[in-house]
Simulated assay, not measured.
Amino acid sequence: MTVTDDVRQALDRQRTIEITTTGRRSGQPRRIETWRYRAAGRYWLTGSPGSRDWYANLLAEPAFTLHLNGMDVAARARPVTDPGERARVLGEIVAALNGAGSLGSWLDGSPLVEIELG
């Protein structure tokens, strides 16, 4: 599937998005609202330090759905565990958040996945 300009424009405009993951234990769809970030020219899901059910779900089943402006878009999560890549991406994200905590705390305890589109 080729990603349309409409999808990219919606992702650029919408910081607050909804995603549907597959529950890792139940196998049922789980829809939540979260924030997407843009760094290094790509799109990411992360959050302040702490555990997240959506992250655990994506580790178990990386396929998920993005809900953007009435569009349901198939996506895939690429978990980022490499310390160097995490530092580069989270460094850019945290710097743009102005006072959302220290980079060290984000590196130690925040989930990070790249949103891969068709």
Rank of each mutant, 00 (worst) to 15 (best):
R13C: 00
S48I: 12
E85N: 07
G84K: 08
G99Y: 04
Y37H: 11
M1S: 15
G84M: 10
M1K: 12
A63I: 02
V3L: 12
G101D: 10
Y37P: 04
A95R: 15
N57E: 02
E114G: 05
R88N: 07
V73M: 00
V7Y: 06
I115Y: 07
G23D: 04
Q14G: 06
R88E: 13
Y43L: 01
R88K: 07
G70F: 07
R38P: 04
R42Q: 13
P83I: 04
D82V: 03
I17A: 04
Q14L: 10
V73G: 03
R88D: 15
G23P: 07
R31W: 02
G118I: 05
L107A: 05
I32T: 14
L11M: 08
Q14W: 06
I115Q: 09
N98Q: 13
A56P: 04
L117R: 05
D12W: 11
N98S: 12
T21N: 01
L58N: 02
M1P: 12
E114N: 14
G118M: 02
L59S: 00
P49E: 13
E18D: 12
T16I: 14
T21L: 02
S102N: 11
P29D: 12
T4G: 15
E92I: 06
N98A: 14
E114Q: 15
E18H: 10
Q14F: 01
E92F: 12
S26V: 05
P79I: 02
W106V: 08
I115C: 13
G109D: 13
V7Q: 05
R25I: 12
G118Q: 11
V80C: 00
R86Y: 03
E33P: 01
G41E: 11
G27A: 07
P49S: 13
L68G: 07
D82M: 06
R24T: 08
T22H: 00
G27E: 07
P111H: 01
G104R: 03
E33W: 09
I93Q: 04
N57M: 00
E116A: 12
S102K: 09
A95V: 10
A100C: 12
D12H: 10
S48R: 14
T22W: 00
W54S: 01
T21Q: 01
P62I: 00
E61H: 08
L117C: 04
T22E: 00
M71Y: 06
V94L: 14
G99I: 13
S102I: 08
N69L: 05
